[in-house]
Design a protein around this nucleic acid. Sequence first.
DNA 1: GTATGTGAAACCGTTCACAGCA
DNA 2: TGCTGTGAACGGTTTCACATAC
Lengths: 219, 219
Amino acid sequence: MKQMKSSKPPVAVPAISISRLSLYARRLATLERKGVEMVTSSVLADACGVNSPQVRNDLSYFGGFGVKGVGYYVGELLFEIRKILGLDKQWRLGLIGVGDLGTALLKQNQFANDEYAFVAACDKDPKQVSRQIGEITIEPFDSMERAFNAAKVEIGVINISHRLAQKVADKLIKGVGVRGILNFSAADIQCPKHVFIENVDFTLSLDKLCYRLTSSSPR
Amino acid sequence: MKQMKSSKPPVAVPAISISRLSLYARRLATLERKGVEMVTSSVLADACGVNSPQVRNDLSYFGGFGVKGVGYYVGELLFEIRKILGLDKQWRLGLIGVGDLGTALLKQNQFANDEYAFVAACDKDPKQVSRQIGEITIEPFDSMERAFNAAKVEIGVINISHRLAQKVADKLIKGVGVRGILNFSAADIQCPKHVFIENVDFTLSLDKLCYRLTSSSPR
DNA sequence: GTATGTGAAACCGTTCACAGCA
DNA sequence: TGCTGTGAACGGTTTCACATAC
């Protein structure tokens, strides 16, 4: 019998499949904007740089969203993937450490489908405090707990020196109750099992590039 | 017989091993600063959140850097990993599209071990052109080819609208001759086989967080 | 006829266990 | 004795091939 759509998968889904679902969602959104109504796994696969069994396999973790012999309805599949990923609501982000990158993030504060929004920010530099960026007023670092609770922050975005990152993470978890942290610092943050951390570090990508540049050409 | 140190590996090394080598290098650099001279695979593994066979296996793709029964010399291993990754020289970066994020990158322009340096930047916004950030003067977009060639740019860093990304990439490859591109745009850039692309996109990390937050708690 | 969904097969990366060496 | 380096075993992801459904 066919599995219920979007039900919880019985087996663990590889993290890499989840990343690909994000990709699929983006391409589907583009197709939807173009008015395309149907798509096959091979067309979607080509658009994402993977192959078609991969697409079908990734989707099959969560159920059958397609029509045999036909393909997938773009709008429906996009809706289902968004639901799987939890992107059918807006997530409230709180930024710790404004700096240049943080300023860029707050000024942007614009996501493809309003899945995210920065709702609070704080910094320990007095020059930053009270500065207004978009709709956000920078709070002093000491008021983080109060401000983030008031703003109902769900995900903490850490953008401070790696030395302070662990302490801030602890405070976010215990004081604000966040279960997700996006970490732009170089720190390797430890946290309880119910909290999830994603690290963002473009120098790792640069290092990968360098290896490939170096290993593919004579020295 | 023992393999030559740092020689080209006979089999393809998984990309994920390369990422871990970057991590090892960072931790080793920290140990070196602390004056630690020797390290075992398990100590290094713990510091990087992996396990010791993983470390030994990753290193064994490139040769034997350790001393049996003892461990690895921190300085020597760091030197070898840097050589493997191609970080024993400074790579020259050229930025296309300054914007807020680009400004942050140029202002920073400071890497842990001087492995990278932005040496040129351009933007199509007349308000950005001629602006000076650190040592870099923003060039007009139309002068990119000339300016990047003059500055001997080796890696292009794309930070513009995804609509223009492919065209800029083509120009970087054909006009400037870069073989590596760091792509901060949402575009899926196509390129010849001898060119390498790394995409940086923190919203993918956010999506992963959301999935885990959503799937680990009742809706 | 055509494309999905899925069990089976192939592949690849990780972990194990131990031989080899300081 | 202790830790590295490595071939072998394991586990998990990707790919294949085909039954199924439209």
